[in-house]
């Protein structure tokens, strides 16, 4: 199989996220609707994995469960070897603080803080020394190309720049797991391109597990692996043509 060939050629091919028979239902009124049907999935490090599908297919719920934001009804979720279903709310918070980064559709930046402070804020809760917080924040902002705009408030930044601040905020934590939910849907084509390129580069250069959820078809060609979802099931799991070409080049 070509997929396993690519996986073995990558240097970081360990499955860092594992879902086993994960089921999730929501009750509204008297009707119980199942969003995820006994879903089993491995996500590997060093790759940008894209979950695509129409809205309501359960992809965001899957992201919430894999990232420890929501518990599954049944089944098991292992992230970096931790069984998330066994952790308390506080332990999950501690896990997320140490290991995960998030990028959301809305940029969710504090209006009162400069780009640098936005990035420093979560770092300051990680117990890092002050100079380390500053160093990481500056490096991350430079990595997303915002070095010159560090002291600007959200109101002074464009949509694309705001999303890059949000990515820098997640990246500065140096997370093993980076989750992105519709990171490009509020952006125009050019900015969307920049954002997905940055996410892809993070996966490649930092060996981060990047799991991205989107219905944006433009992203498919930038992913290392695409999972197509519909009605709470994974319909296909494939490597997009562009990615397989670059992967072959790398090897």
């Amino acid at each position: 199989m070509s997929m396993s060939a690519i996986a073995s050629s990558s240097s970081a091919n360990i499955a860092t996220l594992q879902a086993r028979s994960v089921r999730k239902s929501f009750v509204s009124g008297h009707i119980e609707s199942t969003v995820l049907h006994d879903l089993t999935l491995d996500v590997r490090a060093g790759e940008l994995t894209l979950i695509s599908g129409p809205s309501g297919c359960g992809k965001s719920t899957l992201l919430a469960i894999l990232s420890g934001l929501q518990p599954a009804d049944t089944g098991e979720v292992h992230a970096l070897g931790h069984d998330l279903s066994g952790l308390s709310m506080r332990a999950l918070e501690a896990f997320r603080l140490q290991h995960t980064g998030f990028v959301f559709q809305g940029f969710n930046l504090f209006p009162a803080l400069t780009a640098l402070e936005q990035v420093e804020l979560p770092l300051s809760y990680m117990g890092l020394p002050k100079h380390e917080v500053r160093k990481r924040a500056v490096e991350s902002l430079e990595e997303v190309g915002l070095g010159p705009r560090m002291s600007m408030l959200p109101i002074e930044l464009s949509g694309g720049e705001k999303q890059r601040v949000a990515i820098a905020r997640a990246l500065a934590k140096q997370p093993e797991l980076l989750f992105a939910d519709e990171p490009t849907s509020a952006l125009d084509a050019a900015n969307g391109q920049i954002v997905i390129d940055i996410l892809h580069r993070i996966a490649r250069t930092h060996g981060t597990t990047v799991l991205c959820v989107s219905h944006d078809p433009r992203l498919v060609h930038h992913a290392d692996r695409v999972l197509a979802m519909e009605d709470g099931r994974i319909l296909s799991d494939h490597v997009p043509p562009a990615a397989s070409a670059t992967a072959t080049e790398h090897s």
């Binding site: 501690a94 969710n108 905020r169």
Partner: peptide, 18 residues
Amino acid sequence: GSIREYATLNALGVGRGS
């Protein structure tokens, strides 16, 4: 007014106590 920003901080692991 800042609930989404607070929620984002919580997603990033900043505890509710903080």
